[in-house]
Design a binder for these strands. Structure first.
Lengths: 161, 161
DNA sequence: CATAAAGTTTACCATTTTACTTAAGTTTAG
DNA sequence: CTAAACTTAAGTAAAATGGTAAACTTTATG
């Protein structure tokens, strides 16, 4: 019931790159040092982010990592699922035919709702929003922070049961 | 990031007992058979529910299990935490001093919000509500189903960031 | 009072996941 | 050509997961 370290490190890495204002790619080692990530662990995570299409990597001297999309287009959910695969708070929420007790299992419905609530936060939160929150003052335009999301959730997020 | 089988089985067990209209205690074996739980696994889970104060157990012939509280007073969160310990979607949400990156870690804030959203569902859902949902027709008075909760979440649940 | 029914306790087990570490590549700028 | 940087593939110790099994205690009932 907990985020893995891999995924947490992936989020920190993405956030570190998004916070980088220069155009030159960032080295994995630098990111690891800044974000308290075991460097040899991070170089294992980087290829996964690349396979998921979240980053580009440049090999060789002077190489490094940069984002493939704008920070405002990358949600936390997307990063987590790139590392851990689809989020499912209960086994019965995996795929369609994964629970023999459906239909009419009230337990299933509750977890489905709990998961939608959680995902709505992870989807509404983008790297751009997180950068704004850690770098106030520099905030520019339409991004989304946890505080913003908290206000929105109760008004705008669609809920269906 | 997923509920353990232990906790899922614990929920089914509690729901099975709450659905029982007789006054006599239910046998662990019967519950296991009805709820698709490996019987030898369930007899390991039952003592944990007892230690947590959720059920009373009666030993010896004619013994069995019954609830210590009214189904309307037992939330899903309570059952899950009885088995798995406190829920924490991210390591940094465990206790107080568990994250060296606080304060001002935007990642922490997002997970805290996501967790509150999830917990609000698990707290608002009681065994009584679940019983109602699986046994329509017999519904009596003020209980809470997933559908009800979905309606409530956006209006009544307190959110602070 | 014997016995079977029921929960209790403890120990064990195989498999998978987690969080890393290590080492031998490959690519590319300079 | 060589050092910087990512790539690939193993390996590994510890913990969690999902069970199974066996010996034990308590209690109703005949």
């Amino acid at each position: 019931m907990q985020l893995t370290r891999r995924a947490e490190y992936a989020i920190r890495t993405m956030l570190d790159i998004a916070s980088n204002l220069d155009d030159q790619p960032l080295m994995s080692k630098e990111i690891a040092a800044r974000q308290d990530i075991p460097p040899n662990f991070l170089i294992q995570i980087v290829p996964e982010l690349r396979s998921a299409g979240l980053i580009h990597t440049v090999r060789g001297s002077g190489g490094g990592i940069y984002l493939t999309k704008k920070p405002s287009e990358i949600s936390l959910r997307y990063i987590v699922e790139a590392i851990e695969g689809p989020i499912a708070l209960n086994q019965c929420l995996i795929g369609e035919a994964s629970c023999s007790r459906k239909p009419n299992c009230p337990i299933h419905e509750v977890w489905a709702l709990a998961q939608r609530q959680m995902l709505s936060v992870l989807e509404a939160t983008t790297l751009a929003g997180l950068v704004d929150q850690s770098q106030p003052g520099k905030r520019a335009g339409k991004t989304s922070t946890a505080t913003d999301v908290a206000g929105k959730i109760n008004n705008e997020v669609e809920l269906e049961v």
